[in-house]
Amino acid sequence: MKKDERIGCGIVFLFGGITALLSLRMPIGTFRMAGSGLFPLCLGILLMLLSLLLLLNRLFAKSSSPRKPEVATPADIAMKQMLLFLGASALATLCLNVLGYPLTAFLLTVMLFRILGIQRPVLLMLVPLLIAAASYLLFIQFLKIPLPRGFIGL
């Protein structure tokens, strides 16, 4: 059984367990007059059972079928690139209210372009500038959507 499968099962089992525990703090009631905790309690227990079943299923499959070589996850540049991409998006979300939408859109696009390997300065600056200007005009000026204005006030 792959390590990933075990971790996945474990996380889902834990999620089901925590749900069931938290549900017990709510009124459970009876089947005739169910309280707010009954449905999530049933779901939590069901999830734990399903994840255990999957774990057993995979363990059983291991003993009956020939072992396949585990696919090594390439701890590679692509994964780092994805994490940087996600980090840049999170940073932009964090700064959205302070910097305002147009500036954030520009900086986010520059960062994402850079992460994806665009290096030519003209492309790296001009395209994000055009995208930020177009989205500003579309969302704020044309569609009148109240996006954060930030310290610039645009």
Partner: peptide, 29 residues
């Protein structure tokens, strides 16, 4: 490499406009 940043920007913008909430963007991410 140009399309993906655009989609990400559009997702963030679109998500914010639902409730004007930064929390929605965090949940989306």
């Amino acid at each position: 490499k140009i399309l993906l940043p655009l989609v990400m920007l559009f997702c963030i913008t679109g998500m914010y406009t639902v409730n004007n909430s930064i929390n929605d963007i965090w949940l989306m991410l």
